[in-house]
Design a protein around this nucleic acid. Sequence first.
DNA 1: ATCTCCCGCCATATG
DNA 2: CATATGGCGGGAGAT
Length: 821
Amino acid sequence: LKTPLKQAATSQLVLTERQPDCQPLTTPPKPKETPPADPWTPTSNLKMLISAASPEIRSREQRRQLSDSSSEVLQTKHCLQEHILGDEYEKSQPSRKEKSLGLLCHKFLARYPDYPSPSQKSYICLDEVTEELHVERRRIYDIVNVLESLHMVSRLARNRYVWHGRHNLPQTLQALKKVGEENKYIQQIQMIKKREYEHEFDPDSERNEEMASSFGSSEQSEMSFVELPGVEFRAASVNGRKYKSLRVMSQKFVMLFLVSTPQIVSLEVAAKILIGEDQLEDLDKSKFKTKIRRLYDIANVLSSLKLIKKVHVTEERGRKPAFKWTGPEVLPNTQETKLEATSTTCSPPVSESIPSKEQCSKALFPSKGKQNFTRHSSLIKLVKSIENDRRKIQSAPTSPVKISASTYQSLPVFPNTVAQFPAITKHQLEGQSKTAEEMQMKCALSSPEAVPKPEPSQQPALSQPLGLCPASHSSVSPVILPHPQSGVSYAIYLHPSQAHTVTTYSPGFMLQPLPCANITGIKSNNSKVLNKITTGEGDTQSGTWEPTKSLAAEERPDTKSETSSQRCLKRSQALPENNLIKRHKSDEESLDTSSTFFPSGYLIPLTHCTHGNKAECSNKEKAGVCSLQHTAYSSPITGVIPMPASELKTVNIPAFHITPLNIMLSPNSIAAAPVLSNSCLNSSSTSSAPNPSSSALNFMLQHIGLIPAGVQVPASPVLQHVPVSSQSENISHSSGSTNVQEGKVSKNILQLDRGGLSGKYSAVPSAPKEAQEPQAVTESFFRTPGGPNTEPSLSANSDGTQRISQGTLYIPQRKLEVSEV
DNA sequence: ATCTCCCGCCATATG
DNA sequence: CATATGGCGGGAGAT
């Protein structure tokens, strides 16, 4: 028995971790799973597992061949059915591992392509899945829920989901990262660690007290689900609150990875944070346990997606289970600063290339869905009101042309004012048109720098966001935020209960221990950096801005970068902003009143709203849109925009990673900083999934000829990788007290390779590795004695300060000295 | 013993 | 009301 079990385990690991290397080996398909009725044969069991695994592995490695993978699966399945040859082969008891969520998830994923073509949507029928995979429905829900949290699937109706694959992943991650930053997760993590520390000395003295006090404040984002423009909960979905916990937990869990510097998160910390958010109380041992259980569930799915992998962190206390982010690095969005002339671009994130075309198209029409808030009248109302507001705004000027590519507009600081300020709208490309001229115009507009000219009046439509004010919270008050980088704007809905909290909440309670100071400092540094990058100097301005929270900085980076014209625009807006900011600053110092925001919110992409409006839009527009869309589809878009190396450097600077550090911003602050973001940023991001506008923009530019169609994705990929790998790796290595061990896993993997597949593998040495290779390469490349952050590129841009600050961050109050050589 | 986390009861949501 | 979802926690396999 044991043997078989082990194998199973191994196989699983392999599946999870190894895929890339596998080669197309042919596996003689053997039976896959059998119903547990059969007898037992260890060997058979193994075989089965392996066989099962191999196909999947294959599929994985070749992500490109989706169809293949699916076919494989089918094959496997067939085999299963007819197999039986082995008689004794059977495996019988599925040993727990065979039933693991991770394995199940693999099987599930194997059925669908990572990057399904937009044209053909694949639907997921839960009944079929459960049947084919031989699992209880409950398990499928676990998987689907996590996938939903990443927007890899979305629910259509009962029993029905749509498969999006990883197309939305970049956007999702970016959005999550942003929210994570807003939530001050970094600080929370530090707090927890600190507390832990203290505990060591003092057993449980006043744990409750502390927790309550500190955490109470931190309870912020309670249940909030971050949505993306293109993917929203459909139909009956869920807006309704309560039941999104797994989804929400999943998102938060991911946020923790994206926000923390070594991208390693221990279960314990994650659980505490997640608990802390909604419940002040602690102590709950059972609650903690439950949370942990859920985290394991989520982790299994994320592992199957290869977004994380298990590791162990050894601290003073001993070693604790943890997970390390292995997914694509999310760039700090912020910097769209430079998008200007070149368009920046986005390089494909990570290793996989994404069908740009598809993405673009997708991005263009995100809204397909209307959001239905099922059964939540309040939500519906909100939406309507929002729409109305928007309409008002839009309607005001006549602007036939909306523009937008740029994206995000600014958000009004105060709702009232909002209307007054001109904003550039995001998407609306649609309407417009078709003419080349128009397109050009748009393009121009869209690019921030290039387009400075657009006058406000022209951009009447704020398509997105309208700011609503946070100040008055009604039971449900939506706060709309622009999401510059990704171009995704989202709104946060507070639960009534939360709202109370927020409103009520006293300023003093925030905690921000030491770290704060550091953070702040860093932040300022970052901002400086930004300035530097963007503008040569900017000290002056920066001074003003610095105070702002990182968020502000992030979002607003363009401010600096913008062209004069834009600047002017902004300035006008800025006045209020600045004041606000300043104010905040002071607040912050005192303790941050604002910190609480973003508590629980439900994030809804504004885009949708727009959509809703769409109806109202003139038919013409619609028509225009349609045409546009078509075009988009048919047109060959590269999707990638060339980016100069220099730019890349800037963007990738490690400092930025740190930037996130963040700080929380208050809604006000956010609102305050209206920004026009440009699409570039997003593009840069990696992400492949830029916001609609950006993609549209790119598309247009290319067509117009402004941008070369071919894109060079030269260095960018590498660079992108760098930050991630280098960081994490270095850290792990260097960390003194904290160790990350992956030993087990890797071992298993290795064994497996040797054992069963070696023969096949031998044939294919280099190719497979490639997938993972990049990491290694980059790693070595960047790894420098100085420490994780010391990279050449960095140094160029940064002044010593940055580096220092970074170091500070890492090490913050813990003893674990991670980096610092 | 501890770490993982499967299983499936049962409250809720959805249609 | 019948189902579909999915929170939750016991308790057992894996280490």
